[in-house]
C-alpha cells in the first residue's frame, strides 16, 4: 500500500492505496466519480480523459500514485455555479453526442485543446480529437460543437442556438 494525496474537482483526498490502482479506477470506484468512462485497455479510445494539472490525460494509462500532488478535473467538475461549460452547452446544442459514452472524454480533451488553440480550423479540431474515439456520431457534430464552443469562448458571448430548433 502507498500514500496518495491529490485534489479532485477542488476537493483534497488522501488515501492508502494499492500502487497498481489506475487513476481511472480510483476516480470511478473509490471516489464514485463515474462520469469518466473506460472504453479500451490500450490507451486508444480516450473515454477516460481527465485534466491532470490542466492537461488532458488518459486516466487509464496512469497510476493513481502518479497523480499524487496533482489537481485533477473530471467532467463532474466542469460545470461552474450551475452553468454548463461552453463545451457542454455546445455539445448539447449541436447534437454532439448520441450514446454519451465517449462524451466526457471528448469534452475534457476539447477543454485542454481550446486553451492552446482558441481559434481552431476544422482540420485542427479533427487532429486534436484523434485520441478520442466516438462510434455513434461520425464526429460531424462533435467537430461542429467544438467549433461553436470555440467561437463562443473567444467572443465570450452567449451561444447561439442553431437555427430551426424549438
Amino acid at each position: 500500500m502507498a500514500q496518495l494525496k491529490l485534489t479532485v474537482n477542488g476537493v483534497i483526498y488522501e488515501a492508502d492505496i494499492d500502487p497498481r490502482l489506475l487513476l481511472v479506477h480510483y476516480l470511478r470506484d473509490t471516489l464514485g466519480l463515474t462520469g469518466t468512462n473506460v472504453g479500451c485497455d490500450t490507451s486508444q479510445c480516450g473515454a477516460c480523459t481527465v485534466l491532470v494539472d490542466g492537461l488532458a490525460v488518459k486516466s487509464c494509462t496512469m497510476l493513481a500514485l502518479q497523480a499524487s500532488g496533482s489537481k485533477i478535473t473530471t467532467i463532474e467538475g466542469l460545470k461552474q455555479d450551475g452553468v454548463y461549460h461552453p463545451l457542454q452547452q455546445a455539445f448539447w446544442d449541436n447534437h454532439g453526442l448520441q450514446c454519451g459514452y465517449c462524451t466526457s472524454g471528448m469534452i475534457m480533451t476539447a477543454v485542454d485543446f481550446l486553451k492552446h488553440n482558441p481559434h481552431p480550423t476544422e482540420a485542427e479540431i479533427r487532429h486534436a480529437i484523434e485520441g478520442n474515439i466516438c462510434r455513434c456520431t461520425g464526429y460531424h457534430n462533435i467537430v461542429k460543437a467544438i467549433k461553436a464552443a470555440a467561437t463562443q469562448m473567444a467572443d465570450n458571448r452567449p451561444l447561439q442556438r442553431p437555427q430551426g430548433q424549438v
Partner: peptide
C-alpha cells in the same frame, strides 16, 4: 506521436 493526451503524458 499517438494523440494529444498521449503527448501530454
Amino acid at each position: 506521436i499517438g494523440d494529444m493526451q498521449v503527448r501530454n503524458r
